[in-house]
C-alpha cells in the first residue's frame, strides 16, 4: 500500500466505493458500491486498474487533493470542471500528476457524481467482502466515513501504467444528458390503474431534495396501485416502489434490503448510470422497454468499456 493523495478539502460527500457487497443483503446490509457503475469502471480502466477496484465517489462538489507522489488519475461521471493547479483538465481521460500537484474542481456543470480513480486502485477498509463505505454501519472505506480534511488516500500498489492520455469519447458514454430512464414493468405493475400506468411511462417526474444514495423520491404524477398489503420481500437497486402516497421511489445503491410496497417497474442496468447522475430538481421520464432491448443497451456499454481494455 502506498500513500497517493492528501485531502485538502473533502467536498460535500466523497466516499470510497467499489462494486459493493451484494452477498450481505441476506443479513439486511445494503449492497452499497458505486452509484454509477459505468463511470466507476471507466475511471479504473483509464488508469489501468481492474474495473472493480475502489474509486472516490464525489457528490455534487468535488474534493481538493494533493498528490504525495507521481500518480496517474482519471475523473469520470459528472463534470464538476476538474482542474490541476487551477488549469482545466479533461474528464474521462488519464491525467498524470506530479508530486505536489493539486487536483480540484471549479464547480458543477453536469451530473451529480464524479469518480476519481488512482492507478493501483484506491484502498479502503474491507468489510464483508467490499471496500465500499457504509455510513450507517460506519464500516468500509475510510474508517467507515466520508473523506475528511488531511485524510491520506492510498493506492494498493504503486504503478505507472503506460496508459496516460487514454480517454473515452463522448459518444462512447451513456446518454447522461437525456434524463430518460428505461424500465421493465415490475411484478406489481398489474396493480396500477390504467391512468397511473399511462402516467408512469409518459409523465415527467422531478427528483426531490429528499433523494440520496438510498433512494430517489420523485414529484409529479401521483400514481395509484391499490391492492392487499404485501409481505415484505428482498429488493434490488433500480426497483421503483410505490408507497401509499403515490409518489414513486427509485431504489439506489444503499437501498433498504427489503420492503413491502408494490414494485411497479425496474430501471434497467444500462439506465442506472444515468439515474446516478441525476441531481435534485432534474426532470426525468421513464420509458418502458423489453428485456431484449435492455440487454442491447447493456451490450453497448459493455463494448465501450471493452474498448478501454485493449
Amino acid at each position: 500500500m502506498t500513500a497517493a493523495l492528501r485531502v485538502r478539502q473533502p467536498g460535500l460527500l466523497t466516499t470510497i466505493q467499489d462494486l459493493g457487497r451484494p452477498q450481505a443483503v441476506g443479513a439486511g446490509v445494503t449492497p452499497g458500491g458505486a452509484m454509477d457503475r459505468f463511470a466507476h469502471a471507466a475511471a479504473n480502466l483509464l488508469v489501468g486498474n481492474d474495473r472493480g477496484a475502489a474509486t472516490l465517489e464525489c457528490t455534487l462538489t468535488g474534493p481538493r487533493l494533493v498528490a504525495l507522489r507521481q500518480c496517474l488519475v482519471a475523473v469520470t461521471g459528472a463534470d464538476f470542471d476538474p482542474r490541476v493547479n487551477g488549469e482545466a483538465v479533461p474528464t474521462w481521460t488519464g491525467i498524470d500528476l506530479r508530486e505536489g500537484d493539486e487536483i480540484g474542481f471549479a464547480g458543477r456543470r453536469t451530473g451529480a457524481r464524479a469518480y476519481i480513480a488512482v492507478a493501483g486502485g484506491v484502498v479502503g477498509d474491507r468489510w464483508l467482502g467490499s471496500m465500499s463505505t457504509n455510513l450507517l454501519a460506519a464500516r468500509g472505506g475510510m474508517n467507515g466515513r466520508a473523506l475528511a480534511t488531511d485524510d491520506v488516500v492510498s493506492a494498493a500498489i504503486q504503478e505507472y501504467p503506460d496508459v496516460a492520455g487514454r480517454s473515452l469519447a463522448g459518444d462512447q458514454r451513456p446518454p447522461y444528458h437525456e434524463h430518460l430512464l428505461h424500465a421493465v414493468v415490475g411484478p406489481h405493475a398489474n396493480r396500477l390503474t390504467p391512468a397511473s400506468r399511462h402516467d408512469l411511462f409518459s409523465a415527467k417526474f422531478t427528483l426531490t431534495h429528499d433523494s440520496n444514495r438510498m433512494g430517489y423520491r420523485f414529484e409529479g404524477a401521483s400514481l395509484e396501485a391499490p391492492g392487499d398489503e404485501l409481505l415484505s420481500f428482498a429488493l434490488i437497486p433500480g426497483a421503483v416502489q410505490l408507497p401509499a402516497g403515490g409518489r414513486p421511489i427509485l431504489l439506489m445503491a444503499d437501498h433498504q434490503t427489503a420492503g413491502g410496497y408494490p414494485v411497479v417497474a425496474v430501471v434497467i442496468s444500462a439506465s442506472m448510470p444515468v439515474a446516478a447522475q441525476l441531481a435534485p430538481g432534474d426532470e426525468v421520464r421513464f420509458e418502458e422497454v423489453s428485456i431484449a432491448k435492455a440487454l442491447e443497451l447493456r451490450a453497448v456499454q459493455r463494448a465501450a468499456l471493452l474498448s478501454l481494455m485493449s
Binding site: 443483503v25 441476506g26 443479513a27 439486511g28 446490509v29 445494503t30 450507517l136 454501519a137 409481505l231 415484505s232 420481500f233 428482498a234 433498504q256 434490503t257 427489503a258 420492503g259
Partner: peptide
C-alpha cells in the same frame, strides 16, 4: 424468522 432485511439485523 421468515426474512432478514429492511435494515441491518432486522428480522420478520
Amino acid at each position: 424468522v421468515f426474512l432478514v432485511g429492511f435494515v441491518p439485523g432486522w428480522a420478520y
